[in-house]
Amino acid sequence: MAEAALLRVENLQSWYGESHILHGVNFEVGKGEVVTLLGRNGAGKTTTLKSIQGMVARRTGSVVFEGQELIRQTSNAIARAGIALCPEERGIFASLNVRENLMLPPPVRPGGLGLAEIFELFPNLQERLSSQGTKLSGGEQQMLAIARILRTGAPLLMLDEPTEGLAPVIIEQIGMTIAKLKAKGFTILLVEQNFLFASKIADRYYVMEDGRIIDAFTAQSLKANMEKLHDYLGV
């Protein structure tokens, strides 16, 4: 994995206005992996994803994706390079219907899922194509937010708390979706509070605190480190 990292983040620092949020984040994600960022609220997980995507006011350090340095790129160039974000707030557009929401992100490379495949994963969406995007239920909105970045062909998907506020049956559906995406060869960087959910699908974990990565585990070493993890997350 070390030499073939798809995404390598080194000493990533970022700021919102005057507040310094990330204080040097280091981690990497290998091709085809599902990697989860864990940590308490305010540890900097969401900011890490936004900083990789280029959505913060100021950032320094290094973000290398497929060998290409992205730290000086704008967020649209980063998307075109093949990184797609499903934001925590889902970002479904109220003035667009479901179809328009789904078709909004332009394809960035071949290999994205076709509409037929997307509707196979999320049958609910097909029935609601002409509804206003924000009229969908929370679960459907989450599916739409994920579905919309699958079309683009971006090989790295960053999902920010996809299970937040959803019913168990829908969480299960999203878990299955992520497993299918992994089987299709997508690489997934996940931020998740729901540790139980993450533990079923992730290959590796990084733990964040105060804008830094403070520890890392593989799925295999998870059991042995459970106590430490409880300490970190305060659960």
């Binding site: 995507q53 649209n76 980063i78 998307a79 797609a84 003035s95 667009l96």
Partner: peptide, 14 residues
């Protein structure tokens, strides 16, 4: 219309 609502996210879509 999307960019009117949330320009940052639309830009992050490429």
């Amino acid at each position: 219309r999307a960019a009117t609502e949330n320009p940052k996210l639309v830009q992050a879509f490429g």
